[in-house]
Design a protein around this nucleic acid. Structure first.
Lengths: 219, 219
DNA sequence: TATTGTTTTAAACATACGTTTAAAACTACC
DNA sequence: GGTAGTTTTAAACGTATGTTTAAAACAATA
């Protein structure tokens, strides 16, 4: 196994990045946990930045690919038109399943994903935002296009903001899920599963997407 | 003016913390921008941790106090019972106004606030979470109590999750508002104001709060 | 003015980090 | 079995960070 070292580094880095972020985790803690020499990171990945890119690539590629496949299957299927709420739920469920799909093989990838998004929208990190949209943006734009169909009354600008509100809900849920699960278990001694949370989240997202605009009278 | 140095440090620290986070900003950049000697931070605040605490205290105290006052005024006023949606909007508007109130005097405080919340829910930072809830939790618990009234059909556990979904929406909107405003202005050459965004956000939050539960049929 | 207490300053300190180096160990192939 | 290419290793390097120190500057009081 020639890539045993590489994989051990990636696995350890993912865990640490998910728990403490990119800058807060040092190469020394990563290489120690991976039982690998310190210099191995620079040898195999060139730099710490290269390692971060490799870690994120490892799940972003399958995630976007899975999402793209599911969306294109959804688009091809005959429109059933049951209700806007249900149709939105289907769409968000596809997104949730794509997330769960990569999370299955790669346990802490969603927390890293959330950190990445947070960072990308951190003003003064426009380069990261540009890189992500250029490299992986296609699938998400695809998702936005389909979502847009169910929010036709909005202007592009209004939709832009709405979409990012929803993104915020998802990102926070993903990045905080570990802590929230722990709190929930302690406070209500009832343990929820990720998929329960996801399916509840889908309902919230679908409803939030349909919220009235300013000036509209709520029905 | 004996606290001129202290204020200059706090102002500079707030800007840098908002833009780059707590760990990514060094005391040297803060003291340089504040035109103050490096050692001044340790002299006046003891340590970097002390400075962070001072920066966050400066807006958390007025924020929670304002929120508490508004909520208690709301509770005392006769119940008008127009609709659940409108009542929820009032409640979230109070929260939004409290945020805007501190943001007026302290321009980057909300971005710092968002970073703080994100950090607090970052598992392995239970101490920060505990500190925040112990020091400033009362007002937010008050808010949750009032919010709970309009979501009676949920169990405590369900409400817990719903609340944190909403918190996520708010936190992401606050922390990313600067970047989103810049993107929006560039893409749609239309500039939105914070208060427009806030009032739209209130509608989204109110709708998300009323999303059906799993198993419920959407009306 | 002399004295006391507070604040500011420049310099140094200790530590942690990412990275580089050059030798060693290992692997594969002739 | 020897050789070329690859990987691993221990050590060092340079830099940046938070903190401390001790002297200097300042302020207030008697």
């Amino acid at each position: 196994m020639t890539n045993s070292t590489i994989d051990r580094i990636l696995d350890a880095a993912e865990v640490e990045f998910a728990a403490h972020g990119f800058v807060e985790t040092s190469l020394r803690t990563i290489t120690t946990k991976a039982k690998v020499n310190l210099a191995a990171v620079n040898y195999h990945f060139g730099s710490k930045k290269g390692l971060i890119q490799a870690v994120t690539d490892r799940f972003l590629r399958p995630l976007t690919q899975h999402l793209h496949n599911q969306l294109s299957a959804y688009e091809k299927q005959p429109v059933q038109e049951p209700s806007k709420q249900q149709e939105l739920q289907v769409l968000f469920t596809i997104l949730a399943h794509s997330c769960q799909h990569v999370a299955q093989k790669n346990h802490h990838s969603l927390a890293v994903f959330a950190r990445l998004i947070n960072m990308a929208y951190s003003q003064s990190q426009g380069h990261l935002r540009k890189h992500l949209t250029h490299q992986y943006g296609a699938s998400f734009l695809y998702f936005m296009k389909l979502l847009r169909q169910y929010m036709p009354a909005m202007t592009n600008e209004q939709f832009f903001w709405r979409f990012h509100y929803l993104l915020g809900t998802l990102v926070f849920a993903l990045s905080s899920s570990e802590a929230l699960l722990a709190i929930c278990e302690r406070e209500y001694d009832e343990s929820r599963r990720i998929d329960q949370i996801m399916s509840d989240l889908v309902l919230v997202l679908a409803s939030a997407a349909q919220a009235p605009m300013i000036g509209d009278q709520p029905s």
